[in-house]
Design a protein around this nucleic acid. Structure first.
Lengths: 98, 98
DNA sequence: TATTTAACTTTGAAAAACAAAGCACTTTTA
DNA sequence: TAAAAGTGCTTTGTTTTTCAAAGTTAAATA
């Protein structure tokens, strides 16, 4: 029998990063503040998880404005989509034996 | 929008515990050694994760014999089945927006 | 000008993960 | 029968991860 957890991506072990990705899959762009509110996180905690995802090149940051106010938004990259999908496939395969 | 990660069970954030549960869902009983080999873990690491699952009453331990050799086996509890299913449902709901 | 907001960074503490070694017991092998 | 090996842990200690809270910088509003 093959190791069923070998194909899971370590980056997605975190519920928060999983949540961010699942939001980004269905939202082309989302702001720091919206993420913060949706996931009910402190600034620092969210920022550090976003940083991990950015390092992995799974998300991209866009610094912009809404009117004249700064607004940072995030979007998923192709690599991120692929990695997330692969993770979900691995999860499903692991469980589909049900 | 509702917090999409709120219904995920913290116990299943761990890939290893997720792996153990996914194995136990389809195997009525499985030995310590089989788990160890399937998941490619050290004794101590596996033991500690099994302990966490046992504390939560998601798995049960059975001390027995295979022939004349001692054999400890593990099985899933009803509570464990429920919790695992709830976690998978939460995961699916989080992602089904796809 | 004082306060607030956005989006962080830094700091430090707590928790979790993990490998490696040790251990008690039994069984097998030389 | 003495040594080696296997089972299933526990213990120890290190590394990694998570997280909250406070500090920071720049712009906006009151």
């Amino acid at each position: 029998m093959k190791n069923p957890i070998a194909d899971l991506n370590k980056i997605f072990d975190s519920r928060i990063r999983l949540g961010v990705m699942s939001i980004l899959v269905v939202n082309d762009e989302i702001s720091f503040n919206d993420l913060k509110q949706m996931l009910e996180l402190t600034d620092g905690n969210l920022a550090s998880h976003l940083n991990t995802l950015e390092q992995a090149e799974f998300i991209k940051v866009h610094k912009g404005f809404i009117g004249r106010k700064t607004s940072t938004t995030y979007s998923i990259t192709n690599l991120g989509k692929q990695a997330f999908k692969a993770h979900l496939d691995a999860l499903e395969k692991m469980i589909k034996k049900l």
